[in-house]
Amino acid sequence: MHWIDPDSLPEASGTVERFLLNPHGEVDGFVMTREATAIVVHTPPHLEEELTRHVKPGDCVSVHGVKPRGADLLAAVAVTTKDGRRIVDDGPDHAREHPHHAHRKMEVEGTVRLALFGPKGELRGALLADGTIMRIGPKEAEEIADLLVADSKLAVRGDGIETRFGRVIQAKEAGHEMAALKPLKHGKPGPKDKHDPKPEHGPKDKHKPKHEHDAHA
């Protein structure tokens, strides 16, 4: 969003409650409270270092951003700190690499506090009442959208990371309780699914040489 002039956008202010993490363990936003209302603010991961250096939980900040349709989210283009420093999204550093965090198998069960979204408003997970951040892809999120609304019971198992900013789990299985977990489908087939032969393709493959010969005849 570096092409957008921040001053042309609406401004919202509030107190930073906590940072949010993406599946790589990078800070990609924060929860901001204003008059007892929680606002999810998305910031691009390449702003993590500058954002966490100048902003701390408990700070009052202002955000210039856009609100995607159908999502309780503010996608920040600029964040102004309590000291008046403006942190602006000038676009990603293409040479930047993901941080190297230790991953481990993790499972969690609890109550959803807030749904979490990508910068374009796509559903991408949930923040649980205990502070755990659960992330999944948008296609997987569509499968369990009813479990990602506030006050829903949610149990997940997957790949987890713990950082000084919190705990995030990339869910592989989900359900309303641990005893009812189901594997999440993926938007794209994995290598095994992509190349495994299927019985119904047998006849087509069997005559493939003939079709190729006809095509070049």
Rank of each mutant, 00 (worst) to 15 (best):
P57I: 02
V79Q: 07
H103L: 09
H64P: 00
P199D: 11
L184A: 06
L128H: 04
A115N: 00
P191Q: 05
D214P: 01
A126Y: 04
K120N: 10
E200P: 06
V40P: 00
V40G: 02
L47Q: 11
P138R: 12
A38W: 04
K182C: 01
E122V: 02
G58V: 01
C60N: 07
P138T: 14
H213S: 06
A38L: 12
A179M: 07
K182P: 00
D159V: 14
H213C: 00
R167L: 14
V156M: 12
G70E: 15
V27N: 08
D205P: 01
H216C: 03
A102G: 01
D5T: 07
H207W: 15
T33A: 08
H24R: 15
G110S: 02
V61L: 03
P6G: 02
G158R: 09
P119N: 07
A115G: 14
S8Y: 02
G118Q: 10
W3M: 14
T132M: 07
I136G: 04
A36H: 09
L123M: 11
M106L: 14
L73K: 06
D59R: 00
H207R: 14
H46C: 08
T80P: 01
K210C: 04
G175E: 05
F117K: 00
I87M: 08
A180H: 12
T37H: 06
E173C: 00
R69K: 14
H94L: 15
F165L: 14
P44S: 12
L148E: 09
E49M: 12
L9Y: 07
T33V: 11
P68S: 09
K56S: 12
A95C: 08
P189L: 09
P199S: 05
V108H: 06
M178T: 08
E97I: 11
V112Y: 00
S8F: 05
K204E: 15
V149W: 02
P23K: 14
G131T: 07
E17N: 10
E142H: 09
G175L: 03
R124Q: 11
H201R: 13
I136K: 01
P57R: 02
K210G: 08
E26P: 03
R85E: 13
I136Y: 03
G91T: 15
F165N: 15
R86S: 10
T111A: 02
